[in-house]
Each structure stands twice: as structure tokens, then as C-alpha cells.
């Protein structure tokens, strides 16, 4: 359906914006390494099911793209364009996010099986993975416009999945409670950012926190 397609496209675009921003400016200033590491974890724990579950060629290619691009971005950030200044303000304690997601995945899952717990873990972790990045924005008080486009596209992906879930619930009777709940949590975390993005960036102002 259209929401799912738009969501996936937005997800894809967000990664391309980020890669393009890093490659062109040859800098990772303002980008949280911790958030990027969390995304590697999210993609690895959710998408490694492609080794034992086949959905479609589209699904497989997308999974491979997200796993490889997220690892490549972390590689660029650590080895190629290392930025100690940015690292110094990237101080969000992600061990709590990882630990909390792990505990929640043990409590909430569809089956108490390794693959299902990993799937649930990835949903919880994804819902909070942007926090180090938002925290960094808050500390610096402003961001490059391209960085805000990246964060917007990434947030739009999960937000667009919400009407997709409603659509699938009506048309197929399919309900994924875990994905829906964590998707809503994620969207709430983004809501403040969306608001500022809409009021400043889209109207041609610099991204500055009030």
C-alpha cells in the first residue's frame, strides 16, 4: 500500500541523504555516532532473519542495503572522518537504551524464541535509537540543514508505517501490536523535532532550537 511504500522510500532516502552529506562535506560534524551504532544493532537484530526467512526479493534487497549501509556509515565515522569534537558532545548513555530494550524484549514478544526476542529487541531499540542524535542537537542548539532532512526522513518512515498498519488492519485483519506500539513511541519521540522542522527548516530558516 501507498503508506508502506512511502515509508520505505523515506527510509531509503534518509540513508542516502546521510551518506551524501558525509561524502560531500567530508565531515561527520553534528552526527551522533552513538545513534548510528544503535541503528547497526537494530538492523542486524531485525534483518538477520533474511538468512532463514524469505519474504520477497524486495524485502531481501532492502534488508541487505540497510545492514550494509549502516555498517559503512559507522566505518566512515570511526575511521575515515573521525571527529573528536563531535564525539565529545555525543554523551548519551546508550547502555540504558540497549539494556532497557533487551528487558522489554524478554517481556514483550510473540514467542519466547531467539529470533522473536531479537525481533522485539530491534523494535524497542529502534524506537529510542534517535535519542543520542536529538540530545546532541539540543546541546549544540543548531544543525546543518541536511542533517535535519536526514532526521526528518528517518522519522517519517516509522510515522508513515502507522497509517500502513491501520490500512492492513482493515484490509487484511493483520495487527502487529509490538510494531504499532513501538512505532507510536518512536513517533512521539520525534514529535518535538517534527514541529521545529516544520516551523523553521521548511520555511527556510536555520534549524535552531528555541
Amino acid at each position: 500500500n501507498i503508506f508502506r511504500a512511502a515509508g520505505d522510500l523515506s527510509h531509503l532516502i534518509s540513508i542516502l541523504i546521510l551518506l551524501n552529506t558525509i561524502q560531500k562535506s567530508r565531515s561527520i560534524a553534528g552526527i551522533s555516532l552513538k545513534t548510528q551504532i544503535l541503528y547497526v544493532l537494530v538492523f542486524l537484530t531485525r534483518y538477520l532473519d533474511l538468512t532463514y526467512r524469505y519474504v520477497s526479493i524486495y524485502n531481501t534487497l532492502m534488508k541487505l542495503f540497510f545492514i550494509s549501509s549502516s555498517i559503512y556509515i559507522v566505518y566512515l565515522m570511526i575511521y575515515k572522518f573521525k571527529n573528536t569534537e563531535t564525539e565529545q558532545i555525543d554523551t548519551f548513555p546508550i547502555e540504558y537504551l540497549i539494556g532497557g530494550s533487551f528487558i522489554l524484549s524478554l517481556i514483550f514478544n510473540y514467542k519466547f524464541q531467539f529470533g522473536e526476542i531479537l525481533w522485539s529487541f530491534s523494535l524497542w531499540l529502534e524506537s529510542v535509537a534517535i535519542l543520542p542524535q536529538l540530545f546532541m542537537l539540543q546541546r549544540t542548539g543548531e544543525a546543518r540543514t541536511l542533517t535535519t532532512h536526514y532526521i526528518f526522513a528517518l522519522g517519517a518512515y516509522r510515522t508513515l508505517y502507522i497509517p500502513n498498519w491501520i490500512f492492513r488492519w482493515i484490509s487484511e485483519g493483520r495487527v502487529d501490536y509490538l510494531a504499532i506500539f513501538t512505532g507510536i513511541v518512536q513517533t512521539i519521540i520525534y514529535s518535538d523535532f517534527f514541529y521545529i522542522y516544520y516551523h523553521r527548516v521548511l520555511k527556510g530558516f536555520k534549524f535552531e532550537l528555541p
Binding site: D49, V55, K63, Y110, Y161, N164, D176
Partner: peptide, 10 residues
């Protein structure tokens, strides 16, 4: 309603 165990989304 059926529970979504097939995980066909990204």
C-alpha cells in the same frame, strides 16, 4: 484478527 508473526515489513 491474526497476530503478525510472519514479519514481512522492514
Amino acid at each position: 484478527t491474526k497476530q503478525a508473526l510472519e514479519h514481512d515489513e522492514l
